[in-house]
Amino acid sequence: MSDESGAHDIRVGPFLIDVPRSIGYFGGVGVALALGLVDPPLAVFIGAAPFLVMLTHRSLPVPIRFVGEALEGAARPIGGENDGYVQLEDEQADRERARALAATVRRGEATGPSGRAQAAGRP
């Protein structure tokens, strides 16, 4: 996300897009291509890297995830360790975190000095 509130993120179906980072990433690839710094096949691969990483999403079948992990390994030098700029949102993980937080609050483990629930498991 671009900031804590996600003010610059947009949702398109199951995709969550960080607009400023996406513009920078894909715009940079376009500028490098336009200036002749990279050849078109390499620019396509670099531009496709965030989408190749999405093939590792846990909701996909194992054979597709295997191929996705192999492609992610090939693309790792391009994207480094950063989060993807276009991500497939993991709604199941969000629901699991919410259930775990609700269970913790019910047990009274996540209350602060004011008695209000504290956010647990969030960066």
Rank of each mutant, 00 (worst) to 15 (best):
Y85R: 10
I46W: 00
R97D: 04
D90Q: 05
G27H: 04
G30C: 07
D90A: 05
I64K: 05
A98C: 05
L33Y: 03
L60C: 04
S22G: 06
F66P: 06
R122F: 14
G27A: 11
Q118S: 04
T56C: 06
A34Y: 02
E91Q: 13
A117Y: 10
V12W: 05
G73A: 11
P123T: 05
A100G: 09
I46L: 04
A49H: 01
H57W: 08
R99V: 12
V19T: 08
F26S: 03
V31W: 11
D18Y: 08
L55I: 08
G13Q: 08
P40S: 10
T111P: 07
Y85A: 04
P41L: 06
F26E: 01
P40G: 06
A43I: 04
A34H: 03
R116N: 08
I23C: 06
I23P: 01
A120E: 12
G6I: 00
S22M: 00
A48H: 01
R95E: 13
R65T: 05
G13D: 09
Y25T: 03
V62L: 13
D3K: 01
P40Q: 06
G115Y: 00
E89C: 03
G24D: 07
R122L: 15
L71Y: 12
F66R: 15
F15R: 06
G112T: 00
R99D: 12
G112F: 03
G108I: 01
G84W: 00
P20Q: 05
G79E: 02
V12E: 02
A110S: 14
H57C: 07
A75E: 03
Q92F: 12
R107N: 09
L71H: 08
I10D: 03
D90W: 05
R107S: 11
L16M: 12
A74S: 10
D3C: 03
S114G: 11
G73K: 10
V38L: 11
L37I: 11
A48T: 02
G79A: 06
G27N: 09
D90N: 15
